[in-house]
Amino acid sequence: MQNFSIAPRELFASAWRHRELIAASTKREVLGRYRGSVLGIFWSFANPLFMLAVYTFVFSTVFKARWVGGNGSKIEFALVLFAGLIVFNLFAECISRAPTYIVSNVNYVKKVVFPLEILPSVGLLSALFHAAVSLAVWLLAYFFLVGIPHVTVLYLPLIVMPLLLFIMGLSWILASLGVFLRDVAQFVNIVITVIMFLSPIFYPVTALPEAYREILLLNPLVPVIEQTRAVLYFGVPPDFQALLICWIVALLMAWFGFAWFQKTRRGFADVL
């Protein structure tokens, strides 16, 4: 029986060894989503633009919502809201698909030489591409509606990278559990909906009573959304102490998820 390493360095070494396969699979994943459509990959730009317009109209015009502590303008609310949605959508797209990464690729399981551990990486990079497009739409909207973006935008990779590592770790766990427990996919969809409303997307953390803030901070998306919004819209540097904690938690989660996947993958073929 083949042994699969769970060493922390193997987490990154495997991705590097199979980088060409990951790149080719990601390209196929992105292009395959729009295959056969008239507008093709243009939809990746149209979707975030459309959602930005819809959320802006619904929350700022219908519900008369204003951002707490802001200047009260519709433009501010739209940009602040959309910044949070970019982070959430990246997380939701990966995690909602994670339980099906293995069960939807049964033919790969039968091939001993295929590196199953890269499947979550392909899903993550595909979601990251769409997040990057949404970010480009956000920056263009900010430029035309507000002005030149803050230089603090350059901090964004430091904030997003821990989220990517966290997503990878959780995706490996869910991909494995999805093989043995098919109900996981349904449960995850419910949890994602709950997380959306328990994340500071439509409101800032400061809008909540202090008694509830500690509970909200258990949500791993909270610091990422708050700091993304700070560097993108408000021009405030990130909280480096909180950022360091995010990096430590994310690295531990990534390694634990990878180790879990490597330990359980021997049973995939028997179940499938």
Rank of each mutant, 00 (worst) to 15 (best):
Y142F: 14
V113I: 03
C94E: 02
H130D: 14
L124W: 05
A141F: 13
P120A: 03
Y142G: 08
E117N: 12
V113H: 03
V133E: 10
A132D: 04
F129Q: 08
L128D: 06
L116F: 08
N107Y: 12
F129R: 07
V122P: 05
T100E: 10
F91P: 07
K111M: 13
L119S: 10
L135Q: 03
R97Q: 14
I118V: 15
S134Q: 06
L116T: 04
I102D: 02
V112Q: 11
L145H: 09
L119G: 09
L116S: 01
L145K: 13
S121Y: 13
F129K: 12
L145M: 13
C94N: 11
C94F: 04
Y108H: 15
L139N: 07
Y101L: 15
F144N: 01
V112W: 00
E117A: 10
S96D: 12
P115Y: 02
Y101K: 04
K110I: 10
V106S: 15
K110P: 09
F143H: 14
S121G: 09
A136I: 03
V133R: 01
P99C: 07
N107V: 07
K110Y: 14
L145D: 10
S104H: 12
S121T: 12
H130K: 15
A127H: 01
L116C: 09
F114K: 05
S104E: 13
L116G: 03
E117K: 09
N107M: 13
V112M: 09
F144D: 02
F129W: 11
L125S: 12
K111A: 11
A136C: 12
R97A: 15
V133A: 11
V106Q: 15
E117R: 05
G123S: 11
K110H: 15
R97I: 06
V113D: 08
E117H: 07
E93D: 13
S104Q: 15
F91K: 10
L116W: 02
L119I: 14
F144I: 00
Y142S: 11
K111L: 14
S121V: 14
V122S: 05
K111I: 12
N107P: 05
F143A: 15
